[in-house]
């Protein structure tokens, strides 16, 4: 008849389940994915993360003499695809979620890279770290060619071939 009062013993037995956050620790499990952290010493500015990022929270722009890898945590969906794809393993997923901020501008993190200038046309095309890395990997490749932007390189290669003939 008054079966519904039986909920009282349950409540008594369970007691308080409330987590006393912010005075106590939050319930964050080991697998939780929070904001990412870019290790500036490892990052080469290749831009692989910016191409996979579903909401484009990561962007790579060359402005002035520098390339800026910009992470906008306000748009991040915390999927961790960037960390999976990063060839240098420079991106780490942290457990950080206390990101609240009064200014949107505080939600940006920029990683600044030096840029190489094409020795022929003067356009800026790649970060110097990435170029160094490629140079190491392709040691048999001529350094001359590598310091050219893709367009000039094509022209150079073709003219060389013509010359060889």
């Amino acid at each position: 008849m008054v079966k519904f009062v039986k909920v009282l013993p349950i409540a008594a037995k369970i007691g308080t389940v409330t987590i006393r956050y912010p005075y106590a620790k939050p319930i964050v499990t080991d697998s939780f994915r929070g904001a990412i952290e870019v290790d500036p010493s490892k990052c080469t500015g290749c831009g692989a993360c910016t191409r996979i990022c579903p909401p484009k929270a990561l962007s790579l722009n060359i402005e002035g003499g520098t390339a800026i890898l910009r992470y906008f945590v306000g748009r991040c969906i915390f999927c961790g695809m960037c960390a999976d794809i990063c060839p240098e393993k420079a991106i780490k997923i942290t457990k950080e979620f206390e990101l609240a901020s009064e200014q949107v501008s505080d939600l940006y993190i920029d990683v600044e890279h030096e840029v190489v200038t094409c020795r022929k046309c003067g356009s800026k095309f790649v970060t110097s770290k990435l170029l160094n890395k490629v140079e190491q990997k392709l040691s048999e490749f001529s350094k001359e060619l590598l310091s050219l932007c893709p367009r000039c390189r094509r022209v150079e290669m073709l003219s060389k071939q013509v010359y060889l003939r």
Binding site: I14, V17, I27, V28, T29, D30, S31, F32, R33, I77, F78, C79, G80, M81
Partner: peptide
């Protein structure tokens, strides 16, 4: 909702996020 919260924690443990598991 008290009972449900345990499922949310479980989901986070298995997938890395409470919702939108990715």
């Amino acid at each position: 909702w008290r009972i449900r919260e345990q499922v949310m924690i479980l989901a986070e443990m298995l997938t890395g996020s409470r919702k939108t598991y990715g």
